[in-house]
Design a protein around this nucleic acid. Structure first.
Lengths: 190, 190
DNA sequence: GTCTATAGATAGATAGAC
DNA sequence: GTCTATCTATCTATAGAC
């Protein structure tokens, strides 16, 4: 009989780290080739394991796709919370800064979440995402928005995600961040 | 012996029309599911034919992808030509109006051309596309552009294509067009 | 947590009849 | 221009040993 792992003994791979590594690898590949263009084999290859090992952590590809989106949804919720609880005169600026930081920190992932057809289809059926997006949109639109303002928001949404998809934009990070916040603000100044 | 089709007699399917129908069907499917998410079987099904019939018109899937992008490239060239030959004080406005009209008329296709990973990879190796994009970018950036202006252009590029991907934006078409031109102009007013 | 092995479906692509 | 039939490769997913 083989002894069980005694409590407190370090495993070769810390708890949950295999899963996190897998999600990170999947996110990179999704950003490069799209969700449909990424096979489980490709994910396994990047990790240096077999497909079966991938299926040990997730029961389906869809589950991996959702797992990739989850951190972004969490950040969206934080942004909506922060903007909603701030003074109304500041809520828009807070939302814009949050979205810019999200696009810059998550880069490819944020872009994939917004523009990949497979991801979009899964997230539409995933209530938490739709709810946070709706909250932020409402904050940025204000009450009874004009058609022009709704156009401007859709435009700005595409703009911010296009930036996330760019390979590291040159110039100091702080200048890029400030430039993007200015671009978003300009787009919504109507 | 069967007589050959006499000259001048109308064929059941006009010359080249099968090809055009195929490209249109492929463009729709690419917009809905992405290039990787669209099989040749799916294209054939939408046309009510078999895969073999598709392979009669195109020798590979890549060729279909390029054929879908070709009309967009043609329009980009017209835009660049028109803007370049106009008075410098008007060239930016002409380019913006042209891009907005392209995004609105081609809708899904224009968006796919800009954001699908498979399409992007093929077009990067397709000189005509890169050349026209470079011409238009140069026109919109002007000489020795600042980092902020290059950021603004990338932002605007994402914005305009996000609009194309939207399902028919409500409001009168003319208002949508004017709103988009205003959004693009605002984005580049730096 | 990783492996080998494989099922079952579907992918892109080809051959040849009509 | 369209078909049936088929090839080979790859896909998602499962079973079961270590």
């Amino acid at each position: 009989m083989i002894a069980e792992t005694p409590p407190g003994v370090r495993r070769r791979t810390p708890r949950g780290q295999g899963r996190a590594r897998l999600v990170a690898a999947a996110a990179e590949l999704f950003a490069e080739n799209g969700v449909s263009g990424t096979s489980l084999q490709a994910i396994a290859d990047r990790l240096g394991v077999t497909k079966a090992a991938v299926y040990h952590q997730f029961t389906s590809k869809d589950e991996i796709v959702i797992a990739v989106a989850e951190p972004v949804i969490g950040v969206l919720e934080s942004i909506a919370d922060a903007a909603a609880s701030a003074d109304p005169s500041e809520s828009q600026a807070i939302a814009i800064a949050g979205l810019v930081d999200l696009a810059l920190s998550e880069r490819g992932t944020a872009a994939i979440v917004r523009r990949d057809p497979t991801m979009a289809r899964l997230l539409d059926a995933h209530e938490p995402y739709a709810r946070q997006i709706a909250r932020i949109d409402a904050l940025l639109l204000g009450p009874s928005p004009s058609t022009d303002r709704r156009l401007a928001l859709a435009f700005a949404g595409g703009g911010i995600m296009a930036i996330g998809a760019l390979p590291g934009f040159d110039g100091p990070a702080e200048q890029v961040r400030a430039g993007l916040i200015a671009a978003m603000t300009r787009a919504l100044s109507i």
